Computed example of a mutant assay.
Amino acid sequence: MSRSGDEHGALMDLGHDTPQVPAKARNTSPIVPRGSIAGRALVAVVAIMTFLASITTGAVLLISASASEWQSEVASEITIQVKPMGGRDLERDTLAVADAVRAQPGIVEVRPYTKAESASLLEPWLGTGLSLDDLPVPRVIIARVSPGTALDIAGLRNRVTQAVPNSSVDDHRAWIERMRSMTSATVLAGLGILALVIIATIISVSFATRGAMAANRPIVEVLHFVGAGDRFIANRFFRHFLRLGLQGGVIGGGAAMLAFGFSESVASWFSGTPVGDQFAALLGTFSLRPSGYFALAVQAALIAGITAWASRRTLFSTLNDID
């Protein structure tokens, strides 16, 4: 009896001496491996898609802002042409038309071009050293309209033609309409590219999710065996893919922001040169506004959310197949 009690006490001491595993150390490895090859590939795919989407969005914002500036500048100016006619003094006709335009309500500035200035306007097409005495080159007058003023174009045309019959008024409406059409087409093309990028992202995430579920099928079956529900398992995979989407979004969006910042620096370096002036005339200063960078950040977060949403939908459908 004593021997049995001693053996029992020894067993009890052995059990007491068994090292206890801390609670935090019992579950240190996640259900879904974080550093898998498929996970890194998905981060790369999301980063590339985010970069392409950000470049497209930034380009659309640049073109839209530049087009708005062009339209506002052109809409604030009116061009009057005074054509030479036999028996009439072109200089006197130009001054008469300028005075008539100044009398029109809503006009704040009138600038008639001299003969030398008119010749300089034709130099890019006709070259230098060309005498314009024998050519019927019209004299140009630029009039600026007060901002927010609804100018009476018909009344201005009547006033100008009464002063000089061989004069015409151009308010650039046709050019502005073509510019608006081009801007709208650019925006639609950008939206189409963004839609394709989002579709490609959803397809990539769906395949990656199914692959991760297939690789971890034994773990999913064990979790089902111990009583874990589909929502518990889906949340673990959902957090995993949300993390991957955020990583890819930050990398792709950050790279796009750096690219636009670098392009702005390059544009400032070439400022004042013929190439820089051409780019400035086409795309302004080639720099995004703070609202543009904010839009790129929101877009990166949106793509990360789309990644998580696509994975969640795929998760439940795959769990139903496993069940």
Results as ranks from 00 to 15, higher is better:
2 S>E: 15
4 S>K: 12
5 G>S: 14
10 A>E: 08
12 M>L: 11
13 D>Q: 10
15 G>I: 03
15 G>N: 09
17 D>A: 13
17 D>N: 08
18 T>Q: 12
19 P>H: 03
21 V>K: 11
21 V>S: 10
22 P>V: 05
22 P>C: 00
24 K>E: 14
28 T>D: 10
34 R>L: 08
36 S>F: 06
36 S>G: 08
39 G>I: 08
40 R>E: 04
42 L>I: 08
49 M>L: 01
50 T>N: 02
52 L>H: 02
54 S>F: 01
56 T>P: 00
57 T>M: 12
60 V>C: 03
60 V>W: 04
61 L>F: 07
64 S>G: 14
66 S>L: 15
66 S>I: 13
67 A>G: 14
67 A>S: 15
69 E>D: 15
69 E>F: 15
70 W>G: 02
72 S>R: 15
73 E>A: 09
76 S>H: 09
76 S>K: 05
77 E>G: 04
81 Q>I: 02
82 V>T: 03
84 P>W: 11
86 G>V: 02
89 D>Y: 12
90 L>C: 06
98 A>H: 03
99 D>W: 01
100 A>M: 05
102 R>I: 04
103 A>P: 02
104 Q>Y: 05
106 G>R: 10
109 E>V: 08
110 V>M: 13
114 T>W: 12
123 E>F: 04
124 P>W: 04
125 W>A: 10
127 G>H: 06
129 G>A: 05
134 D>S: 11
137 V>P: 05
142 I>K: 01
145 V>I: 06
147 P>V: 09
150 A>L: 12
152 D>R: 07
153 I>H: 09
156 L>G: 04
160 V>K: 03
161 T>H: 06
164 V>P: 08
165 P>E: 00
165 P>R: 00
167 S>A: 14
173 R>K: 11
174 A>N: 07
175 W>K: 02
175 W>R: 02
182 M>H: 11
183 T>H: 13
183 T>G: 09
189 A>T: 12
190 G>V: 06
197 V>R: 01
198 I>V: 12
199 I>M: 10
203 I>S: 07
207 F>K: 01
208 A>K: 03
208 A>L: 10
209 T>E: 10
211 G>K: 09
212 A>E: 14
213 M>I: 13
216 N>W: 08
219 I>N: 07
220 V>K: 02
223 L>A: 01
224 H>T: 04
227 G>V: 01
233 I>H: 02
236 R>S: 15
240 H>T: 03
243 R>Y: 07
245 G>F: 07
249 G>P: 06
252 G>T: 00
253 G>Q: 02
256 A>W: 00
257 M>S: 04
263 S>T: 15
264 E>G: 14
264 E>M: 14
273 T>Y: 00
273 T>R: 09
275 V>H: 07
275 V>R: 13
279 F>I: 01
280 A>F: 12
281 A>Y: 07
283 L>N: 01
284 G>M: 12
285 T>D: 06
300 A>H: 04
302 L>A: 10
303 I>W: 01
310 A>N: 04
310 A>G: 02
310 A>K: 08
311 S>V: 07
315 L>T: 12
316 F>N: 06
317 S>M: 05
320 N>C: 02
323 D>E: 14
